[in-house]
């Protein structure tokens, strides 16, 4: 290879703030750059006057800034158009994009348009013989797979939030900030941003609870929830849940723990019948102690819990009620 392509990181920001996935990607990209002598380039699309470039200037060698009010809020259509042209011009070796709702809308389309192969939701990246390989989870975290790519001028990888937490002192670069010309022939957007809407607040705020009794799919039937609610009440805990419970309309959304629900930081998180999809686990990283009860001894929740019980959740719930009564 005559010229070592850069590693690109696509900056993600929302409501005037850079999202933590951006720093996680910059950290991982920085590690690869150090090992293999690549340059690290952050690609920033932002509205006029959004001062993001200075926030990331210590994290990259170059920040390429596309500043236009059309880029104030993410829009896969416009972002894809701008980034595709940039990629074809500069042939970055690897381009990292967050595996977020926005990244999931951008990366697959960009891959097809640029002709660069993509691997999604990666928890590790290895470079061997001048080509990256991605480590990702499948079957809801029950298996891992190592994925390689067909040879290409460059590769796209979407990164799982929380997979690469930067340690203190990770920001040790000094970026050259370059203002880029906005392509003059951008087509009209096929999508118009209207507004952000928060999930309606409920009668409980699980993010403030010290002790959460949390239920997942393992609860089986809607009728069974009352028994666990009763347990939570008796133990002085707050009832929370994983996504499937809300999807099935068994509990309102404000009970939901996880990336699309709330992040929680209780002293104790008692997970009953929760398998532990990463979107859920990401929401409990602030919990001091996690106790998981699940019939499936291979449930991914046991890899992140401090204590595990391989048993039927109702037997344990009944036993707990007995003890507390006495």
């Amino acid at each position: 290879m005559s010229k070592m392509g850069d590693i690109f990181v696509i900056v993600e920001h929302r409501k005037g703030e850079i999202r933590s996935i951006t720093f996680e990607m910059l950290y991982k990209a920085g590690e690869i750059c150090k090992a293999l002598n690549h340059k690290l380039t952050a690609v920033l699309l932002a509205g006029k006057g959004q001062p993001f470039a200075s926030d990331i200037s210590k994290w990259a060698d170059t920040v390429l800034v596309f500043e236009d009010d059309r880029f104030m809020d993410f829009d896969s259509d416009t972002y894809k158009e701008v980034i595709n042209r940039l990629i074809l011009q500069q042939s970055p070796f690897i381009t990292l994009i967050g595996h977020t709702s926005w990244g999931m809308d951008l990366a697959p389309a960009l891959s097809v348009r640029a002709g660069y192969p993509v691997a999604t939701d990666c928890v590790d990246i290895i470079v061997e013989g001048g080509r990256p390989k991605a480590i990702r989870q499948t079957y809801g975290g029950k298996a891992f797979s190592r994925v390689s790519f067909r040879e290409s001028p460059g590769y796209l990888i979407t990164v799982r939030p929380g997979a690469f937490i930067p340690p203190d002192g990770a920001a040790d670069r000094q970026a050259n900030v370059v203002m880029m010309d906005i392509p003059s022939d951008l087509g009209p957007a096929k999508r118009d941003f209207v507004e952000f809407v928060d999930t309606a607040a409920g009668e409980v705020d699980i993010s403030q609870a010290e002790f959460l009794v949390s239920i997942g799919r393992g609860v089986g039937e809607k009728e069974n929830i009352d028994a666990i609610k009763d347990l939570a009440d008796k133990m002085g805990g707050t009832l929370s849940c994983s996504r499937p419970i809300v999807d099935m309309n068994w509990l309102p959304k404000y009970h939901q723990v996880g990336t699309s629900g709330k992040s929680v930081r209780p002293k104790i998180y008692l997970a009953l019948g929760i398998s532990g999809a990463f979107q859920h686990v990401a929401g409990i990283s602030g919990a001091q102690t996690v106790i998981a009860v699940n019939k499936d001894k291979k449930a991914p929740i046991f890899r992140v819990a401090d204590y595990g019980v391989v048993d039927d959740l109702f037997s344990i719930a009944d036993a707990l009620k007995e003890k507390i009564k006495g």
Partner: peptide, 14 residues
């Protein structure tokens, strides 16, 4: 569109 952290985006699409 469901975003992270309990936030939703409302958009118009052709």
């Amino acid at each position: 569109i469901e975003l992270e952290g309990g936030i939703n985006e409302v958009s118009k699409i052709r």
